[in-house]
Nucleic acid binder design. Structure first.
Length: 283
DNA sequence: AAACAGGAACCAC
DNA sequence: GTGGTTCCTGTT
């Protein structure tokens, strides 16, 4: 196991990032977190302004890890620009150190297809089972971890095969999306180069991917920071901040947020989500 | 044990 | 293009 320490990373809060609902494979481990990211098993521990990473890679993968955690981004600047919107001050100050991870587009696509009409605990369970049954094993000190399965593997499964993962009616979406990706009908690695809206139109071609799931894929794996995913929590936040008592469609809400926050929309969403989830009903 | 939480598809209009 | 209904699993 190789160890590397990133210093002077503030604002950065590992716990908030790992519990923020953007990634589903991080779990508490001792006084930090452990996760399987691509073919790496990563132990992460925050010590004040330092992030200690232990993983089954080497010096040549350090930049990859740095990019995954968004350590090259100037979050001091992002947070202060967000705070220029008066209504975001409570959310940003509540979870300063929140960050958007750069995840693998394929894994993110399937993960958020599973997330539709589903809660975080269930989503994590299903993804763990999916990896355990159909991913590749990685053995570390006698413990076996599993990678996320490939498009080829998932495209050859039947709905029956997926029953054991408890993904419910989403099974057919997973298989059909895997087929489309495998056949190159939608090429995820090309989407980074496209503008946000064009990439989104491509993503929505995938079965099980609609407005919200596409925005999550754009934001969490394609670097489209102007995407603004609206789930029930963001809807609650937006209603209580901007649309008290009014009926506003999700599409209008999304346009409003993207217009107002522009290239910061995705970041605004990230802080609002964590804030409202932990403060809703606390009057 | 019934109610609830959580987005996309599909079908009306 | 907007609105209502259905789809599963897990928790209370």
């Amino acid at each position: 196991m190789f160890e590397t320490i990133f210093t002077d990373i503030k604002p950065f809060d590992l716990e908030i990032i790992a519990e923020s609902g953007q990634a589903f494979r991080w779990n508490r481990y001792k006084d930090g977190y452990i996760g399987v990211i691509d073919s790496f098993v990563i132990k992460a521990k925050q010590e004040a302004g330092n992030l200690r990473i232990t993983f089954n890679g080497g010096q040549e993968h350090v930049d990859y890890i740095r990019n995954y955690f968004g350590l090259d981004k100037d979050y001091k600047d992002i947070e202060s620009r967000l705070m220029e919107f008066e209504e975001l001050i409570p959310a940003v100050s509540y979870c300063s150190g929140n960050r958007i991870l750069s995840q693998d587009p394929w894994e993110t696509t399937i993960s958020f297809i599973i997330s539709a009409n589903n809660s975080i605990g269930n989503i994590k369970n299903t993804i763990e089972l999916l990896c355990k049954f159909y991913g590749n094993p990685i053995e570390i000190k006698g413990v076996t971890y599993y990678t996320f399965p490939t498009p080829e593997t998932l495209s050859n499964l039947t709905e029956e095969d997926l029953k054991s993962t408890r993904c419910g009616y989403r099974a057919k979406y997973i298989i059909r999306t895997a087929k489309m990706i495998g056949e190159g009908k939608v090429n995820l690695s090309n989407l980074k180069k496209l503008p946000t809206d064009a990439a989104r139109r491509e993503l929505i071609k995938l079965p099980g991917v609609g407005p919200k799931v596409s925005d999550c894929i754009l934001l969490y794996s394609l670097g489209k920071y102007d995407a603004f995913p609206i789930d029930v929590w963001i809807k609650r936040a937006m209603n209580s901040i901007y649309f008290k008592g009014k009926k506003v469609s999700l599409e209008k809400m999304r346009n409003f947020a993207r217009e107002r926050y522009k290239d910061l929309a995705g970041f605004a969403q990230q802080y609002l989500f964590y804030y409202i989830r932990n403060n809703y009903n606390k009057e």
